[in-house]
Design a protein around this nucleic acid. Structure first.
Lengths: 248, 248
DNA sequence: CCAAAAGTGTTGCAATTACACCCATGC
DNA sequence: GCATGGGTGTAATTGCAACACTTTTGG
């Protein structure tokens, strides 16, 4: 997490260590209940939310910069991370950043590049909802999971960024990496199905779904069942291929 | 095309008009015979080829920068252009650029950013092979179409860039935009099939292919046939939806 | 014993694949 | 006339979508 010290000295020296006019933004997806959620930061003193992001150090790859953001925001190291688009339009309204810095009380030179045009490389990340401890920083009041179909007002072009991330995620749902990283180690078939439904945005047939999943051979049924539900206990499953080998 | 004047003054003033450490590279696909080809520039005095690319002006969108490259290199304005990946690794070996500038006789300060780390946004473009007049510039000996499965040594990470572009193109072959922009206005069914085969990298069944294409309803058969071939004359087709409406 | 969710198998349709014959043309 | 490529139809298979009944559990 960014310290107060870090922020205060940001525009004096840290900014020089980064590639100007470039940033990475992360759409961090988590799955909870029946909802696909994204992690958002609320800007201090403004009724505006934003995706977690960061700048790219001069000797740091884009991927590494995105990993760094993930670690700061979720405390997680090995998660599935994928670059999906570069946002380089001229309508990103960096101006709102100026308001933010003013609220927080940081003095920023008018010609500092973060106040002007920034090209952002979009990454999406898939994490286990329950393992994340959302952390805010000096620029943000809070860090919160928000359902993808009920987003608050977002800064810059971040609504577009989420939309494109979601579209890419849908297109790539075929690979088992996605479920394996969004779900906990052990899960039931209905849970897996609800995840697919949340990503695809439509209902699926229970029987066909189960058949497809089992025939694919990537699931292993565990002896235990999930008890405590109000109805018949569901079997627990896990992915045969270990979680570690699936990440990236 | 870049003029001599442009190049000579580049490191004095033009460089300041661009976003540092950022470029766009274009994989320009054309279709000729049975081969999918890409347009490459040969660096002056070096046995090294590179993708056409350019820097991004401070008030220019990424898309616009890519269009500019296309126009310089092919003379074409409205072509299908699509961003597919941002290349931001640390192993791009910008050092080879230093050799190039030395050969051409341009004096470049050691700390000039084009000699160091550059993040490149990759675009692929689809053009009509026969409408392109490949143009080289002050930095390159020649501009040539090269078959995608027989590429010469490429600068930087451009071999990766081509590979990823090709993979993306394959994944998006469903949309008729691709064929419509890679083929001339009028074409035969075997020509369309050879294009699909070149992109997919495998043979297709002639009869099933034709059936699918005709049933999709996007083709219009013209009264003429392609004469002059050694064998039975093939019908000519064109896409029903006008070419203009398909671009982007 | 009833409501609500979980487990399982069958059937039909639609899309894809495999495959064979005739036609036109140049040599 | 024959070799080569172009045009067309049909049968088989496969994958996917629709669908119904039984089991378990808590209340």
């Amino acid at each position: 997490m960014l310290s107060r010290k870090y922020v205060e000295t940001f525009f004096e020296k840290d900014i020089a260590r980064h590639i100007p006019h470039l940033s990475v933004d992360c759409v961090i997806f988590g799955f909870h209940g029946a909802d696909l959620k994204v992690l958002l930061l609320k800007w201090k003193g403004l009724d505006l939310w934003a995706l977690p992001g960061g700048y790219v150090a001069r000797r740091e790859s884009l991927d590494a910069a995105a990993q760094k953001v993930l670690l700061e925001r979720t405390g997680l190291r090995r998660v599935h991370l994928r670059q999906f688009h570069a946002f380089g339009g001229l309508s990103r309204r960096e101006g709102s950043a100026r308001q933010l810095f003013a609220r927080v009380g940081i003095k920023v030179p008018d010609d500092a590049w973060p106040l002007h045009r920034v090209v952002s490389i979009g990454y999406y990340a898939l994490v286990d909802y329950w393992k994340v401890r959302p952390g805010h920083d000096f620029l943000s009041d809070s860090c919160m999971w928000c359902s993808t179909d009920d987003l608050p007002p977002l800064a810059f072009d971040h609504r577009d960024v989420v939309r494109v991330a979601l579209r890419t995620l849908r297109e790539n749902l075929a690979s088992p990496v996605i479920e394996a990283t969004l779900l906990p180690e052990r899960f039931t078939m209905p849970e897996l199905q609800r995840l697919h439904e949340a990503i695809l945005g439509r209902r699926l047939d229970r029987r066909n779904f189960q058949k497809r999943m089992l025939e694919s051979g990537i699931l292993e049924r565990l002896p235990e069942r999930r008890t405590g539900g109000a109805h018949r206990a569901a079997y627990l499953y896990r992915f045969k291929t270990s979680r570690a080998s699936l990440v990236n």
